[in-house]
Amino acid sequence: MRPFVALLVRDLRLAVRDGGALGTALGFNLIVVALLPMGLGPDLGLLSRIAPGVLWIGLLLSALLSLPRLFEADFEDGSLEVLATGPLPLELMVVAKSLVHWITTGLPLVLLVPVVGLLLNLDFAALPILMTTLLLGTPAVSFLGSIGAALTLGSRRGGLLIALLVLPLYVPTLIFGVSTISAVVLATGGVIAPLMVLAAISLVAIVIGPVAAAAALRAQMG
């Protein structure tokens, strides 16, 4: 447990010291969401209807921005090789790094949603369920993203490649996230079922992501 905590603390400290990543993600999210009303015109009813889906997509795209750096710095300065000789299995190393990505990117983006929601005339009755789905769904974003980050390690234009690899994996999360919200707002059906599926997707991602990413990292180093 000690190596895991040490890595977690180091990466959180690095995220704070180096900054940048969080500001970029939050700024990008704000701009994407702000552009939309300008493109669609000031139809408040329309904006209100599409707000949950837009906020979800904005969050997915913003979280992608910092994914390429997940292993890159450690790969470049040789830390990854030393981490691999540590007592911690590579899978748990990936868990620690994905967790840090969720804490430093996913969580702040979720907390920003009530603010950027104002730009889309978000129905504030939908806010609690929107926040709930985002909180349940974003771990999948970080943990599935680690697979893309590990696969594209060391490649030029890796950032674009990650988007192609990872965005399709986010489709189930997006579908069940948005359908949970519709179930509440439009009262079209049960809320519990899509919410449970959303949580299940995140749990599966937490298991599969690190295993796949660790396998990719081994191939990258070997």
Binding site: A6, L7, D77, G78, V82, T85
Partner: peptide, 30 residues
Amino acid sequence: GEQCHFVGHTNAIKPSLTTAENIEFWGAYL
């Protein structure tokens, strides 16, 4: 691997951490 120290061409240190923090981390991790 767990009984080896591998020192490669790179130093495996983080520029934004202090000297002590860098080595404290490796001590705790390894």
